[in-house]
Nucleic acid binder design. Structure first.
Lengths: 211, 211
DNA sequence: TTTACTCTGTAACAATTGTTACATTCTATT
DNA sequence: AATAGAATGTAACAATTGTTACAGAGTAAA
């Protein structure tokens, strides 16, 4: 599809006409498949991604390569970490992976600043920062105040939203990796959640019941 | 001291002349004592604080009133949560307390947007967002990847920086409240840190040795 | 000095989370 | 169908963190 049409179709409710026009010129479309890497820790950011369809999951990684999921980004939003890094001209502090097949619009990083004179762009950038901030607070809430049982349930519910389906195609092992715990712990707790009637377990699938 | 002199003395290296002038007109000085509340969860934000001297500590609080310290803000910076909330016109999602006696410059919230046409202001606002973002990542790192021993040590080191002294006037109980654990756990780990030669314990005081 | 209170130390035990080990079931491929 | 590998279930145990209880030392005020 033509970029101009794509931009207009997806962002005309967000941005003013002149900005949409500029965007049409410099933006490029990127289509990614589920589990494709968008960016890894230490990589340089050259583009800022605006998500058209799909969902992206964002992780923090430590020196041993252990991951912890921070949040999902969905259609009509962008990655504040990109903003963060672009502004500093720094390397990525996070890694981002496609949660499902997704379409992104890539904007060259220097446009981030160039476009700040557009009121709608400023609102978008600040809005994204704020959304990400709120999600970081949620991540801290989970870690600081909740036990594993509740953290797993919250994780599953967020996953339902990101995937727009209460049937999650996921293994216990994947969950353990994204929450930085062990597979046995996850299996144990999922079984308890099933007994409690919160979820229904099947091979490679979890159905969330109490949504 | 005259606000104009204060603004110029503290921010002339950060902001352009015209902005300094505007700031001198609308800013007001606020002096707070150690442990004074600056803002609490649910309160409305009417001013954006720029820190001149001292340090502020920022907490997340859950429904049961349990706290978890997120980070310290020091001179020449501001609170991105304020930005977050001001932008949304929303209530505070955090609480902020003076870590030590501090001087702040209060800016009416609507100026945040008004001044975005100043390049230096934009740089400052984005810079603050980025600093806070990095600190939120650090908070997640601690919680997701580190054990209590290392988290307490990291906490103490951050405290040394915020207080510009390796002698910390603090009780075990206060530490337990700021890290959302129990006093007994803190005492146990501090004793171990002392045996390991990382710190020196005294009543109401901890000296950090390996800084 | 006496008293009350705060702060710290520590033991004993409980609860949660993590690890190791192994069995079973399901699935894809030969 | 036989085989190999992945996914799940579960027991047994270890390590970490949290709780309860109490003793003793320091401190401030009566």
């Amino acid at each position: 599809m033509d970029i101009k049409v794509l931009v207009k179709a997806n962002f005309s409710f967000l941005f003013e006409k002149a900005l949409l026009d500029e965007m049409s010129i410099v933006a490029q479309l990127k289509e990614v498949k589920k589990n494709d890497y968008l960016i890894d820790i230490g990589q340089e950011m050259t583009f800022m991604p605006l998500i058209i369809t799909g969902a992206i999951k964002v992780f923090r990684t430590d020196d041993d390569g252990d991951d912890y999921i921070l949040y999902f980004i969905e259609g009509g939003d962008t990655c504040a970490m990109t903003l963060n890094c672009c502004m500093k001209g720094a390397k990525s502090e996070i890694k981002a992976i496609a949660e499902r097949d997704s379409e992104l619009l890539l904007i060259p990083v220097h446009k981030l600043e160039d476009w700040l004179h557009y009121k709608s762009w400023r609102a978008f950038v600040f809005g994204s920062y704020n959304n990400r901030f709120t999600e970081m607070l949620e991540a801290v809430d989970s870690l600081a105040f909740m036990n594993m049982n509740d953290r797993i349930l919250k994780y599953l519910k967020n996953k339902v939203i990101a995937n727009k389906s209460e049937f999650l195609k996921i293994t216990h092992n994947t969950i353990s990796l994204e929450l930085n715990t062990s597979r046995v712990v996850v299996s144990r707790i999922l079984k308890k959640l099933e007994i409690d009637g919160d979820i229904k377990l099947d091979r490679n699938q979890i159905k969330i019941l109490d949504f």
